[in-house]
Amino acid sequence: MLAFISRRLLQSVFVMLAVSLIAFTLFRFVGDPVAQMVGQETSVADQERIRDSLGLNDPITTQFVSFVSDLITGNFGFSYRTRQPISEMILSRMPATIELGIVSLLISLLIGVPAGIYTALHRGGAIANTILVTTLIGISIPTFVIGIFLIFIFGVQLGWLPTFGRGDVVTIGWWQTNFLTIDGWRSLLLPALTLGVYQLTLTMRLVRSEMQDVMKTDFIKFARARGINRHSIHYNHALRNTMVPVITIIGLQFGGVIAFSIVTESVFQWPGMGLLFLDSIRYVDIPVMSVYLVLIALMFVVINLIVDLLYAVIDPRVRTGATH
């Protein structure tokens, strides 16, 4: 087990190093950092001095090492566009994205899991088929189109819900939350639904196929043969075994939710990290781009690691690689 953990950790470190290298290359070679920082009237000598003081004349390996150690210590540098420290910019945007992600994940679970169980247990039934066809369409509709349709129906035609921004927020320390005001919840509803629908279809299809697989196994047949009542077989035996892989996939989905929030945040002008990243691409704000890249990769790597370790705890074959 220890060997497995260390191998997996090493792999994660490798991925993070590779991503930092990409981010570094971006930062160092796409556009000239000095030209971005100074005005046009700065003399060549002054530019050279800035270049020196930033360490841009050091050997490239030294620069990479200091880039990585800056990242590790949380010293993310400054945005070209706003001249603010990037760590501050990201910290102020993070709560919006995380709250949006949590609520949409909850929507996806609260609807997706029961719907998946239902369609698995009632194969071929009229309601189950309707749900399945709906999800196939749901999976094909781009997130931004879902958002626009929701805005059109609930914002424009019915006028029930706000369609952009976070609405009233309450500030606790540096964390601005939507959860404590009614207006905050109303503003959160449409973006969270938009982001949740795609995840919902994934959750539902996953729960359904896992549950169907479990229902075919011998121990369920045996449980039937023993005359255990249907309800108990479905919810005590089958569901419990279904939930193991489902829980791990849900961990991965949270990463997806945060990444896809870029689109949703753009539709609803939700002031989160995704919108920040989008702005950084539009204005070629390279430092913000590279920091965002590293942070998102870190999040995915950590989630992947946890999922793999969970699997290893549950299934001993994974540890030794016996399946290959």
Binding site: Q11, V15, V30, A259, F260, V263, S280, V284, L293, N304
Partner: peptide, 21 residues
């Protein structure tokens, strides 16, 4: 592996951003 740690939309956005730079 490295690329799979990023969703496709992010990779595409990033390459577009690099091209812009």
């Amino acid at each position: 592996d490295v690329q799979l740690s990023l969703p496709a939309i992010l990779t595409a956005l990033l390459i577009d951003g690099i091209a812009r730079g």
